[in-house]
């Protein structure tokens, strides 16, 4: 179980990295490598060229950006997980990290790399969509910002072009009042069978806005709009919880694999929707 050959380039700066991407159309970025190298060991992916960005200085930042947070492409999972700034401004992400991988993997793996890998059962894409994060992509032609909702296009497929590198993740300031994350996996820390990330705002006891985002039950993380519609406009009571759960289950078209069948994933989406919406509403205080 050894990786195939590849050319190795080490970038000293973001500009250097995107130039290398432009110069090597068969290249991709190597950040923490925790998913990529495993897949290369299995020879499931075989990039001809890797551009190692681990030496790019000052790319692992987590800093205030207005009332939100800006996270550099090299911020390691554990740094994000334990960031007080993230906890204060995007607690949904902090909560999600309780279910993401294991300590040693989080030491090396990066949030940016995880998002670009776009595994359909990954947790972080759901969080990004739920909070309305923006992903900043850079190429030799310049930078552009893509909303998380538009970033994930399919299994291992994102809106980033081959010549673009994700350089920053922007989390907005706390928009919603309530939030909750829940996941089911067979073993703790495994990729998810189903994930629901929910954000919610209440006004006068009624749901003013809601995002219910699923992962693990489709080709990529996505909002479950019918569930959101079932919530908005009324109190978060048992009737609406049931309606939202049913709508969520109806909004997904999950697959079956060795971890769970489609019927289970649908049940899980319903259960997790009910649980996250309830908890998010409670957190609205």
């Amino acid at each position: 179980m050894k990786p195939p050959r590849f050319r190795y380039l080490r970038a000293g700066s973001v500009d250097g990295a995107v130039q290398a991407l432009a110069d090597n159309p068969d290249a991709r970025i190597l950040a923490g490598g925790q998913s990529l190298i495993a897949m290369m060991n299995l020879r499931l992916v075989r990039p001809a060229c890797l551009i190692d960005i681990n030496r790019v200085p000052d790319l692992g930042y987590i800093r205030e950006e207005g009332d939100g947070v800006a996270i550099g492409a090299l911020a390691r999972h554990n740094e994000v997980k334990h960031s007080e700034l993230v906890r204060a401004r995007c607690p949904l992400l902090t909560e999600a990290y309780e279910s993401i991988a294991h300590h040693t993997v989080r030491n090396r793996g990066t949030l940016g790399g995880n998002l670009c890998h776009a595994d359909p059962s990954s947790e972080t894409p759901a969080v990004m969509i739920a909070v309305g994060a923006t992903l900043v992509l850079q190429s030799v032609g310049g930078t552009r910002a893509v909303g998380a909702e538009d970033f994930f296009l399919g299994t291992y497929e994102t809106a980033a072009r081959q010549d673009e590198m994700l350089v920053e993740i922007r989390l907005p300031g706390r928009g919603a009042d309530g939030w909750a994350f829940a996941e089911i996996s067979n073993r703790h820390g495994d990729f998810a069978i189903a994930v629901i990330a929910t954000t919610l705002s209440l006004e006068n006891g009624r749901c003013a806005a809601a995002r219910v985002v699923a992962s693990g039950v489709g080709e990529h993380a996505a909002r479950l709009v019918p569930a959101e519609q079932a919530l908005v406009g009324g109190p978060v009571d048992e009737t609406r919880l049931d309606a939202a759960a049913a709508a969520a289950a109806g909004a997904v078209d999950p697959h079956s694999d060795s971890h769970a069948d489609a019927a289970y994933r649908r049940d899980a989406v319903a259960a997790l929707t009910r649980r996250t919406v309830r908890r998010a509403a409670e957190r609205c205080g």
Partner: peptide
């Protein structure tokens, strides 16, 4: 695993 047990419960 959860999926099989849930199927029995369902």
């Amino acid at each position: 695993p959860p999926s099989r047990l849930r199927a029995l419960i369902r």
